[in-house]
Simulated assay, not measured.
Amino acid sequence: MLRLKSINELPQEEDGFRILIDEFWPDGLSQEEAKVDLWLKEIRPPTELDEWLEEDPIYFENIEAEGRAELQRKKL
């Protein structure tokens, strides 16, 4: 099962294998704190989605849906 989360959410035991999909590593977050197993910069979401989230974090659900669609388009 694939679940999308914000990197700002605390890692949970049930997360399993964690992949960061972003061009840049988040400021102020260590790899140890993030508990990221794999960092895939090359499949990051379009910049527009990042800008949308920065404008209003409540839109994460919409970004999650767009991210899933993007992964499907890229067959990942």
Rank of each mutant, 00 (worst) to 15 (best):
E33W: 03
E70C: 02
N8S: 03
L53A: 08
L10K: 13
D50Y: 14
D27S: 07
E61N: 13
E70M: 07
L10M: 09
W52I: 05
L2K: 04
L38P: 00
L53P: 00
S6L: 05
E13G: 04
D22W: 03
P45M: 08
P26K: 01
L20F: 04
Q12R: 12
E64H: 02
D22G: 03
A65K: 15
L20C: 02
M1Q: 09
L4V: 05
E51F: 13
E64G: 01
R18W: 15
R44I: 08
I43V: 10
R68L: 13
I43C: 00
I7C: 00
G28W: 02
L4E: 02
P26I: 01
K74A: 01
P11V: 02
T47C: 03
I7D: 02
L20R: 06
R18L: 01
F24R: 02
T47Q: 06
A34T: 05
L2R: 10
L10E: 01
D37K: 07
V36N: 00
W52S: 11
G28K: 10
W52A: 07
D22F: 04
I58C: 08
K75V: 12
E55V: 05
K74C: 05
E51N: 12
D27I: 08
G16L: 02
E32C: 06
W52D: 09
P45V: 11
A34P: 04
L53W: 08
R73Y: 11
F24V: 13
K75C: 02
Q12H: 13
L38I: 06
V36Y: 00
L76D: 07
I63M: 11
D27Q: 15
E70A: 15
E51C: 12
G28E: 01
E66G: 03
T47Y: 06
R3D: 05
V36W: 02
I58V: 02
K74P: 00
I21R: 06
E13T: 10
K74Q: 12
I7K: 11
A34I: 07
A34N: 03
E23Y: 14
E9G: 03
L71H: 00
L4T: 05
F17T: 09
K35T: 07
L40I: 14
